[in-house]
């Protein structure tokens, strides 16, 4: 792990992406702790409606005269946390499911894998929409629905890793040493499978950020007054022709975040697998 880390720190792209990710996350955390509610409420006296970017409003204002820049800062909190939390949910469900399926194998494993097939053949959107209606379209609802559609990949990956690792000698050694099955999974199998899993999780984050924005676009994302980059961009789409700044800036931030996480994932994968890195 340490080796991989130091290799990672030697990659320029990785460093740039990592710093973007860190600064976006810092922005998100700061906006959450600062609790600047002015970004929500509309200013009834404002005459700066739909104004283009200027020195007083760096990114312009929306149809209610709200400053887009402060709304984007505010939105970062939900967008980033939805991305990361979804990835964590997917990681937890996926790892648990995948390691059970991989380790126990046999009938149970087959059965569990069939479960994944079924989960795959339910359209993501159906699950997300129904969950959204059921739980409500707050942050929790979105998180649960996004988590529910994104764990399957991780589960498959973990299972494959474990099946491969089970053939290795150290597992036999642990078994003959009398270790329990759960202990073997936790102590020996998972730590060795962690590399590819981390990479997969890194790729889940941008996926979740994109899914959230898509949900917002079809009107099933976060319900107002909460706002995320996704909801901002989809609001902006409606005035694409006349006020392109409203879609441009939120999209730019989505793009930055997603791109950084994707490239970071690439670099992580390369760092973890030096054989690939040589290319």
């Amino acid at each position: 792990m340490n080796q991989a880390w130091s290799r990672l720190l030697k990659m320029p792209t990785a460093l740039i992406c990592l710093s973007i990710v860190i600064s976006l996350s810092t922005m998100a955390i700061l906006s959450a702790s600062g609790l600047d509610l002015s970004a929500y409420a509309f200013d009834q006296t404002s005459n700066d409606i739909l104004s283009p970017p200027s020195s007083s409003h760096w990114m312009g204002t929306d149809e209610l005269g709200r400053d887009l820049c402060s709304r984007i800062i505010y939105g970062s909190r939900l967008s980033i946390s939805i991305g990361i939390l979804t990835a964590l949910i997917a990681l937890i469900i996926g790892t648990a499911y995948g390691s059970i399926a991989g380790f126990y194998g046999g009938k149970l494993g087959d059965f569990l894998m069939r479960g994944i097939d079924i989960a795959y053949s339910l359209p993501d959107l159906l699950v997300m929409i129904l969950m959204g209606v059921l739980i409500g379209r707050g942050t929790a609802g979105i998180l649960i629905s996004l988590g529910l559609v994104s764990w399957m990949g991780t589960a498959r990956l973990v299972r494959a890793q474990i099946l491969q690792l089970e053939q290795e000698e150290f597992v036999d050694a642990a078994r003959s040493a009398g270790l329990g099955q759960i202990a073997i999974i936790l102590k020996h199998l998972l730590p060795n499978a962690i590399g590819p899993v981390i990479v997969a999780v890194t790729f889940t984050v941008p996926q979740a950020i994109l899914s959230e924005s898509t949900l917002s676009f079809i009107g099933l994302g976060l319900s107002p007054p909460a706002c995320s980059w996704g909801t901002l961009a989809s609001d902006g789409w409606r005035s694409l022709r006349t006020h392109p700044h409203l879609i441009f800036f939120p999209s730019l931030f989505i793009f930055l975040a997603v791109l950084s996480f994707n490239l970071l994932g690439d670099s992580l994968r390369d760092a973890l697998d030096p054989r690939l890195r040589r290319r």
Partner: peptide, 9 residues
């Protein structure tokens, strides 16, 4: 870029 931008954008 292709995988980093929402479809509607």
């Amino acid at each position: 870029i292709g995988i980093s931008v929402p479809t509607f954008v």
